Simulated scan of single mutants.
Amino acid sequence: MPEPRRLVYRHPLPIRIMHWINVLALTLMFFSGLQIFNAHPSLYWGNRSDEGAEILQLGARQDATGALKGVTRIGQHEFTTTGVLGVSRGRDGSPQVRGFPSWLTVPGPQWLAMGRRWHFFFAWVFVLNGLCYVSYAIATRHLQRDLWPTGADWRGIGRSIVDHLRFKHPHGEAALRYNILQRLAYLTVIFVFGAGIVLMGLAMSPRMDAVLAPMVEAVGGRQSARTIHFIIAWGFVVFVLIHLFEVLISGVFNQLRGIITGYYAIDSSPADTSAPRQDTSSESVPAQERPHD
């Protein structure tokens, strides 16, 4: 007989709103960023972008038959990536030279000026939403109470690694607490990825040279800042993919109900199967940072 469950009010309205704003902003920033990258699909280190000094280049060349072949070069190593990177099919079905395929770029297949407008607009949405989240987390003590690792968390890091490798998820009240890997992951996303991608984005702007000159020099130059910005963007992609995988294997309906309505089901004893109740110990924890059922 399945164990009875009860609903806990897990995600308050401000957190749910900020979560979905973040989803929208990050998605459109990423795809518009790829459109901007396509205008010059190469990465460098330092202040200069000299030909032959690329550390990553998405390009094309003709093969022996005259057909276009997509080539991705990382350092001195080349890979054929026709159909995905370097050369992909346009909307008319013909092969076209472009870094990333058109279906990955917004607002259009090749519209640099509008892509920059979209990117900068949603970047400010991301920044303001992030500041609201951090302020809310500090004011409700969610940051200090639920995200900052304790001594017990560090002592349990080995068990957390084993549980994650075995896809073993906590149940009952334990599902309302973070383990050490979750805490470290979310702190990294918020304060390293979030802050880093914004600062590197600003460092790429010539108008910010006077303000951020020491930081630009510290990372090696404007081209270095662009490369770091690109790497962090893909770091966000990896985090999101892992997050979605965890949602899939831990109960999609329960997770979606939590982030849409605020209510989340946990295992309960037979004596505790009453109506939904408020969980005051975890109500300020955002959906993307709560442990999975």
Score class of each variant (00 low, 15 high):
Y186P: 08
T65K: 14
V238A: 06
Q96S: 12
E289S: 08
R61D: 15
T82H: 03
R89L: 05
F121M: 06
G151K: 11
P206R: 11
A67D: 12
P14C: 13
R207N: 11
T150N: 14
A203F: 07
I74R: 09
M1S: 14
L104Q: 08
T227I: 10
R155G: 09
H119N: 07
V125G: 07
E173W: 04
H292M: 13
G59F: 03
L199A: 05
Q110L: 04
R257W: 09
Q57S: 13
S160H: 00
F230Q: 08
I242K: 10
A233N: 11
P95G: 06
L241R: 06
F30S: 10
L56N: 01
S135Q: 05
G158W: 11
T80H: 02
V252A: 06
R145Q: 12
Y44D: 05
F239R: 10
V23G: 15
D63E: 11
Q288V: 15
V285Y: 06
P101H: 01
E54H: 11
R222V: 09
R5E: 03
V134E: 04
E246I: 07
G172R: 01
N22G: 08
R222N: 04
V162R: 05
V219D: 03
E78L: 10
V216S: 08
L199R: 04
Y263F: 12
R166F: 09
L212F: 07
R10T: 06
M200S: 03
G262K: 00
R145L: 12
G90L: 09
S274K: 14
V211W: 06
R5C: 04
A139V: 02
P107L: 15
M114P: 04
W124G: 10
G99M: 00
M200Q: 01
P4R: 00
A271P: 08
A218E: 12
I197S: 03
Q144R: 12
R10H: 03
A139S: 06
T80W: 01
R257M: 10
F193G: 09
R226G: 01
T72D: 07
G108C: 14
G90F: 05
G86N: 09
V97P: 02
N254V: 07
I197A: 09
I190Q: 04
E51L: 11
A152D: 04
S224M: 03
I266A: 02
H142F: 13
H77D: 08
V125Q: 14
I138R: 02
W148Q: 08
T188G: 05
